[in-house]
Simulated scan of single mutants.
Amino acid sequence: MIETERLILRPWRGADRAPFAALCADPEVMAHFPATLSREESDAVVDRLADHQALHGFCFFALERKEDGAFLGFTGLMTLKPENPLQPGVEIGWRLARQAWGAGYASEAARAAIEHGFEVLGLAEIVSFTATENLRSQAVMERIGMTRRAELDFDHPAVPEGHRLRPHVVYTTRPR
């Protein structure tokens, strides 16, 4: 578990599945993904994240607001999938419910996850990537001190060729 002033990054609970499914079914939240997710698909994501945590000790953790215990989405670290051209490595990622946007939660949680990655996990580098058109996530990457690495940009292998979301930009950070 990782805590910030306002947030808790924690393991997933059964009660997180319904609000996560609602978040993943929201077309605005999923605008920079090829499709929204069904309940079964979002549950499968939660299962994969929990499995990753069991194996590696970290994942895209459930994000909870301390003030009221509200589930906001996820933030955390994941090892890169074998087909990702940036692997081997660890990425930082986030996905927040629309009602949590604009409050600085993504940046606050991401900074804590990066600190955990360097100070506790001993990582040498953390990467982040998103569709070229996802300017909101790129702004978070810049706010948390990541550096744009245009030479590492790639076409995401899980996105169909010719799709507007296939081109991805890359940011990285190293311990300071």
Score class of each variant (00 low, 15 high):
50 A>G: 01
81 K>A: 11
116 H>Y: 15
16 D>T: 08
9 L>S: 05
78 M>E: 02
175 P>G: 10
41 E>Y: 08
15 A>T: 08
65 R>K: 13
14 G>Q: 08
10 R>F: 04
44 A>M: 10
17 R>E: 12
20 F>A: 00
119 E>I: 04
29 V>M: 11
11 P>K: 08
69 G>P: 03
132 T>C: 00
137 S>Y: 07
152 L>F: 13
118 F>M: 06
130 T>K: 00
119 E>M: 07
32 H>V: 06
25 A>K: 10
155 D>K: 12
16 D>A: 11
133 E>Y: 07
29 V>S: 09
173 T>M: 01
23 L>G: 05
142 E>F: 09
28 E>R: 15
37 L>I: 02
1 M>R: 11
26 D>R: 04
47 D>W: 14
123 L>Q: 04
20 F>P: 02
112 A>W: 02
171 Y>M: 00
80 L>P: 02
69 G>F: 13
39 R>M: 06
40 E>N: 13
88 P>L: 13
137 S>I: 04
109 A>C: 05
163 H>N: 07
158 A>Y: 07
169 V>Q: 04
143 R>H: 15
113 A>N: 03
62 A>W: 03
144 I>P: 01
37 L>V: 00
39 R>E: 12
102 G>V: 11
65 R>P: 04
149 R>S: 09
124 A>R: 15
70 A>N: 03
55 L>R: 15
79 T>R: 14
124 A>L: 10
82 P>H: 11
31 A>T: 12
84 N>T: 04
78 M>R: 11
141 M>W: 01
68 D>F: 14
30 M>Q: 08
110 A>N: 09
86 L>V: 02
50 A>L: 10
120 V>E: 10
117 G>D: 04
7 L>G: 00
17 R>Q: 12
172 T>S: 15
136 R>Q: 14
61 F>C: 06
130 T>D: 04
129 F>A: 06
86 L>F: 05
89 G>V: 11
173 T>I: 09
141 M>T: 01
14 G>M: 03
165 L>G: 07
147 T>R: 14
127 V>N: 02
13 R>A: 05
91 E>I: 05
88 P>Y: 13
91 E>M: 07
53 Q>G: 02
121 L>F: 14
33 F>T: 09
53 Q>H: 12
106 A>R: 02
128 S>C: 15
68 D>A: 13
162 G>C: 12
134 N>G: 11
128 S>G: 15
149 R>M: 08
12 W>P: 06
43 D>G: 01
86 L>D: 01
159 V>G: 05
145 G>L: 14
111 R>H: 06
73 G>K: 07
129 F>S: 06
140 V>H: 03
112 A>P: 03
33 F>K: 07
79 T>I: 07
34 P>H: 10
146 M>L: 11
2 I>L: 15
100 A>R: 09
8 I>W: 13
121 L>V: 09
140 V>R: 08
144 I>A: 00
163 H>M: 05
144 I>T: 01
156 H>Q: 10
7 L>K: 01
66 K>N: 03
37 L>F: 12
47 D>A: 15
81 K>R: 11
68 D>E: 12
115 E>L: 14
21 A>K: 03
